[in-house]
Design a protein around this nucleic acid. Sequence first.
DNA 1: GATTTATGTCGAAGCGCTTCGACAAGGTAT
DNA 2: ATACCTTGTCGAAGCGCTTCGACATAAATC
Lengths: 336, 336
Amino acid sequence: MVKITDVARHAGVSPSTVSYVVSGKRPISEETRRRVEESIRLLGYRPHAGARALASSRSNVLALMVPLRAGIDVPVVMQFAVSVVTTARRYGHDVLLLTQEEGEVGLRRVVDTALVDALIVMDVQLNDPRLPLLRGLDRPSVMIGFPASSEGLTCIDLDFMAAGEACVEHLARLGHRVVALVGSPPEVYVRGTAFAQRMVQGFTAAADRGRLTSAVHPCEASPAAARAVAEQLLREQPALTGVVVHNEAILEPLIDAFEGLGLRVPGDLSVTAICPDELAESLRVPVTSIALPAAEVGARAVELLMKKLDGKAVSEATLLAPRMTERGSTARRAVA
Amino acid sequence: MVKITDVARHAGVSPSTVSYVVSGKRPISEETRRRVEESIRLLGYRPHAGARALASSRSNVLALMVPLRAGIDVPVVMQFAVSVVTTARRYGHDVLLLTQEEGEVGLRRVVDTALVDALIVMDVQLNDPRLPLLRGLDRPSVMIGFPASSEGLTCIDLDFMAAGEACVEHLARLGHRVVALVGSPPEVYVRGTAFAQRMVQGFTAAADRGRLTSAVHPCEASPAAARAVAEQLLREQPALTGVVVHNEAILEPLIDAFEGLGLRVPGDLSVTAICPDELAESLRVPVTSIALPAAEVGARAVELLMKKLDGKAVSEATLLAPRMTERGSTARRAVA
DNA sequence: GATTTATGTCGAAGCGCTTCGACAAGGTAT
DNA sequence: ATACCTTGTCGAAGCGCTTCGACATAAATC
């Protein structure tokens, strides 16, 4: 292994000078810098991560805690993760993967052992058990999602309330008067998962404001459940003409189910969703949707952390405005 | 931060004794051990990861490189990852997440900087560019999947060749004489991804051996592509009665397409697949399938690495025997 | 021309841990 | 009794890096 003293000797300078060339924390003459860099290249020098972490109390590693629970869409999680890793690398950081299962204990551990400089946690619940820990930590963290109170924390997410409103308003503008939200699996609401609840809030508020008749139905992530919900909806709300879907996994089965029941989309029924654009585009009936900007959220989360690591202040809440793309699944209500 | 000297002072021993209590690398009297452990608990001592890595040249971190390419089923990747993390934790290790994008450079980096002790790479191709690097490294690695030659490497995977054979043999036993394999997207084969090719080999070999008529069709991961393949199959092989699907994403759409074309499963057409059990079970027609034992492969991969880190020899190739579960999608061929 | 300020480099200390050799005390074999 | 392990503990060295203060030199200020 080639170490900093080897480089120093080769370049005819002291180890500290090499260190300063690498870190840029002190001015170095153009000439010395070039010599040192040349030596580094020639010898293939790579600073030892552990030594560096010990001396600088910075590991240049972030922890990312990913959910693996029922009702969480796996591809979306993966998009986050990849985006976090990619962005972190751009800032010279690596990413340690933690599972939700490890919980607060896991977070504590990686912080206490100085394995990581900062934390990103996903799948935040309204009263997440990790909140007190994160608040009390001396290390920066960012939550992807919003708890009941974000005071003293840094949170980022799509503005699900605005998204719910936007869906309803879009349908209302098209003349629809009876709408329904088909949501995530029940356990997601039971756990008090913030984004799902906020979506419901936005949906309901906008419907009330527009004097629409509305209903909310959680739905398991199986085609069978989708069919059951479709049938139930038509039974309970025969005048239904607008549906908002907030459940990636059943979007396609649900549309199939409606069509199986004799409803044309968008002829008889307008459907809009919150889901990744790729999904919305790939369906047989491309769906008017609000994008789930997983990659952007992941990247922004890392950027927030980097700012905090630099000692800069960041705002507690970052809500990404929903962006709706109209595709073929929504249309003006046919007047009977 | 409480450090080892604090614990030592509190317990009335030397730092090295504390270290030996923690690591168990030297015998310690029952009494001293108890006192030290008590002090550790009381003070909440956590060894500094960087210091430990520096002194012991062991970081207790594994690198996991995950694929994010077209045609790779994301949920399966996630299952691997979670299983790797969980198992690694049981051995006191953490997991650093690398994306395929980082390639050889990324692997080199984490090894050279001593960030990780060992590597796990997924989505191995027959002539994977990372092979020479992994062979030359002084650090252990395990590949999930098989390259063209596994010499000097450690590989583990489902035995896809046996899986392909098992599917055909199952169909043959049920009296089917004309079979087709609907495979992964074309690019997967173009890249020379080992598991996909081995599956084809097994399928073809078994079909030839049994004198069945057979055909292989790659298929994009979209419902539309599934429909197209279904139509093409019936056009080209009107006598077709057995289908093997090796493409998680289109399993359901493909069955839908066949039924849409008037074929009953399993009445007119027997379908079998290689996919996670949960997927096979959750479909409208539960599918006879060979499980993709992602969790087991991930766990075994970590165990292999741990053995290698302990200096023990492990076999180069570990092939997990396919395990078929019969569900409702295959039946004896109706004799016309 | 004296004094301050900025620039560039060095040496030494120290980050918190592991590990090696030394050694004392007790046990076992001869 | 001698020699020899074994068990249990300690002290010191050192892992490879960063950082701080010191110092020398050059540039800027009045």
